[in-house]
């Protein structure tokens, strides 16, 4: 792997800024996102909420290069990153977690976390194959780094277990460790609180607050309580459109938002 991109600006440890301008996504005839503009300023924790099918995950998918937008722009630290390819996120310092966790059940916890490490400093394939010392040192450092990340989240005791054998809450922590090991400047969390107990949610909130110094965080959730207590700024999506933006108090008092949520609860029932 080339080392050219390793010295990107994101390595400085500064939080990154994300901006999305009039973004549209269509799947066949279905409009998944319709002219959405929103921003995640550097160092902020921003919530993106909305009923099921509002386009929250689609928005993340565009930012991570899994879905091509039909129109609009995505900029990261002032640089246009439309049509970015997923593997480039890691070097830009963008990490993302997945709704389904997406852990490798055939790999151990520590191996899962090691794969998330920042690329660019790894020795070439040849040294790995020939077992050169440089490669050995790299493996050892990588393992140490992953273990430190697990320790930071208090789950180092599970390092050699397989994710499938662990409680869901711990698996969630593993997926967070995998996203954090690259020391991202921007963290995209897809439903980080789903499936967590009340106690675990409190731990999550404390953890995310502690990360704020080093990274900007955007989280997609449909649980309002968590978002309201954690985020400084909230964007509300409904049927692919941005229907409101503002502080938690502003959002709570917004008629459109309560309508969207009540409406969705009625149709859910």
């Amino acid at each position: 792997m080339s080392q050219a991109a390793s010295a990107s600006a994101a390595d400085a440890g500064e939080p990154g800024a994300l901006e999305v301008r009039s973004l549209s996504v269509r799947f066949g005839g279905v409009v998944a996102l319709d002219g959405v503009s929103l921003s995640v300023p550097a160092g902020a924790i921003v919530g993106i909420i909305g009923p099921n099918g509002a386009g929250k995950t689609t928005l993340f998918n565009v930012v991570s290069g899994l879905v091509d937008p039909a129109g609009g722009d995505v900029t990261y630290n002032g640089r246009r990153i439309n049509g970015i390819r997923p593997h480039e996120l890691n070097r830009l310092g963008i990490s993302r977690t997945l709704q389904g966790l997406g852990l490798w059940r055939a790999l151990t916890v520590i191996e899962n976390v090691m794969i998330g490490a920042r690329r660019g400093s790894s020795p070439g394939f040849a040294s790995a194959l020939l077992g050169l010392p440089r490669s050995d040192r790299y493996e050892a450092a990588l393992k140490e780094q992953a273990l430190a990340q697990l320790k930071a989240l208090g789950i180092e005791e599970y390092a050699n277990r397989h994710p499938g054998t662990l409680p869901y809450g711990v698996q969630k922590w593993v997926s967070l460790a995998r996203a954090l090991i690259s020391r991202p400047a921007l963290l995209l969390l897809d439903e980080p609180a789903s499936g967590l107990s009340a106690n675990e949610q409190k731990q999550l909130i404390a953890l995310l607050r502690s990360l704020k110094e080093r990274m900007s965080i955007a989280l997609v959730e449909h649980r309002l309580d968590l978002v309201m207590s954690l985020c400084e700024h909230i964007h509300v999506l409904d049927f692919g459109r941005l229907i409101a933006s503002g502080s938690p108090t502003e959002i709570q008092n917004n008629k459109k938002v309560t309508d969207a949520y009540l409406g969705s609860e009625l149709t859910d029932a």
């Binding site: 991570s64 899994l66 390819r85 997923p86 593997h87 480039e88 996120l89 890691n90 070097r91 993302r96 997945l98 997406g102 490798w104 055939a106 790999l107 191996e111 090691m114 794969i115 998330g116 920042r118 690329r119 995998r178 690259s182």
Partner: peptide, 18 residues
């Protein structure tokens, strides 16, 4: 390790920079 991960879930591996 990356090769094993890619074999099981290439899309997730890509998101992690592989």
């Amino acid at each position: 390790l990356q090769m094993r991960a890619s074999a099981f879930a290439p899309d997730i591996a890509r998101l992690l920079g592989v």
